[in-house]
Design a protein around this nucleic acid. Structure first.
Lengths: 221, 221
DNA sequence: CGGGATATTGACTCTTATCAATGCCCGTGG
DNA sequence: CCACGGGCATTGATAAGAGTCAATATCCCG
């Protein structure tokens, strides 16, 4: 049981170093770049590859016919995304900032996996980590109020940034709103509220000083 | 690629038939029963097993310290649940109705998986299907209004019940509300609204006739 | 330095939550 | 078999939180 987490990060390394001539289970990825707001893949497009973020930030989102959008995740360097239960992507992936990724053919990963059981176990682990994150986000969307959502968001961004007291937000308010199930105006007001309470300090719209992480954590539930 | 879905259901069969003496990759499960509202496992309890529903309905939920609850899924016969990214369950599982399940040691599954790569691939597929469902639910919680949520819920229940025009709801209004991120009063009002519009007919609180599935689908988005 | 996109702030509305009263099943026991 | 009781569910009145629309303000980026 204790070995489960350990596997989660080893896949990225394995793929990093992969060279076709090295071993039977090696998988070669191809590097790709995307400009801001460019589409890595679209919803309902064939899901032939999975991706690893090298640099930049990627958002995964779904759209309703009338344009309402829900962002399910932001992916930062080291994250993998694009795993799908069937042959079509059921969400789209776009570059929030200029992005570099490595694309791996899903077919090749599975082929390599039939040689090495641990590679498939790594894929399983990555997917289970994604599921855990998504379930946590369900609780946020279903049961937390606006201030709690924004607080939780800032804490999450902080964690990804390595707990530095200054968080750089890669995305505009509109993306934050669509991630948190709010409007951009409400996100803005909650930032103002947190500023008011002395929990954060804003330096421009994108740079946030977390002055009191304990209080933020108390709010973020 | 087309083989991915096919694997999803084969795991259940493989486990059903499993007998320790039959093959190296067989996995033996143990049958368990739970009365209404009994706990199959609790949040933050060690995650030693995964489960398959034999009969009844199971709810997966997370609680906030102040008692707010979010149900992430209802599991019906044939579904498997209890997959976790780490060693502890990050949600609890409870019987909505009297329930029979088969419990499989996670450790045994992985051990069997090291012999048979396809078993781990089946587990991967089940997890990806769960992820897809959860992302769909994110869109519902983040961006749909009360009427759309209830309509989508009824359509989902209909699908599980095999598209029979009469849906039997196994769970009380409170559980529906906690699944849809609403209050039980709002769920009740939306049922009344759908009844008003001639889209459904109620026969007691738990039996719903879907009179116009097309209109329901238009609402459920 | 200027201009367009992005963000903030304000006034008002609307959906859903909250609080409260009533009604309806269903199972139980007389 | 019927009456009773207790959970569930429905319905109503009101309030609160977030959304909408609109007017600045600010920040980058060229």
């Amino acid at each position: 049981m204790l070995t489960r987490m350990a596997h989660a990060s080893s896949l990225a390394n394995r793929l990093d170093l992969a060279q076709p001539q090295r071993s039977k289970s090696a998988v070669l990825g191809i590097a790709m770049s995307f400009g801001r707001d460019m589409e890595v893949y679209a919803e309902s497009e064939p899901a032939s590859h999975v991706y690893k973020v090298v640099s930049g930030v990627v958002r995964i989102s779904k759209l309703l016919p009338d344009g309402r959008r829900q962002i399910s995740a932001f992916h930062t360097p080291g994250d993998m995304f694009g795993f799908e239960a069937d042959d079509l992507h059921n969400a789209s992936a776009e570059a929030v900032t200029p992005v570099k990724v490595i694309a791996y053919k899903w077919h090749s990963l599975l082929a390599a996996g039939s040689q090495s059981a641990s590679l498939v176990r790594d894929l399983l682990n990555l997917t289970m980590v994604g599921l855990r994150h998504t379930q946590e986000h369900l609780l946020l969307l279903g049961r937390k109020n606006a201030l709690e959502r924004v607080s939780a968001f800032l804490l999450d961004m902080d964690k990804r940034g390595g707990f530095c007291p200054v968080v750089e937000l890669a995305m505009p308010r509109h993306d934050i709103a669509d991630y948190l199930g709010l409007t951009l105006e409400t996100v803005s007001r909650m930032f103002a509220e947190l500023k008011e309470r002395g929990v954060i300090k804003l330096e421009g719209a994108r740079r946030v000083h977390l002055l009191d992480k304990d209080r933020l954590a108390a709010l973020g539930a």
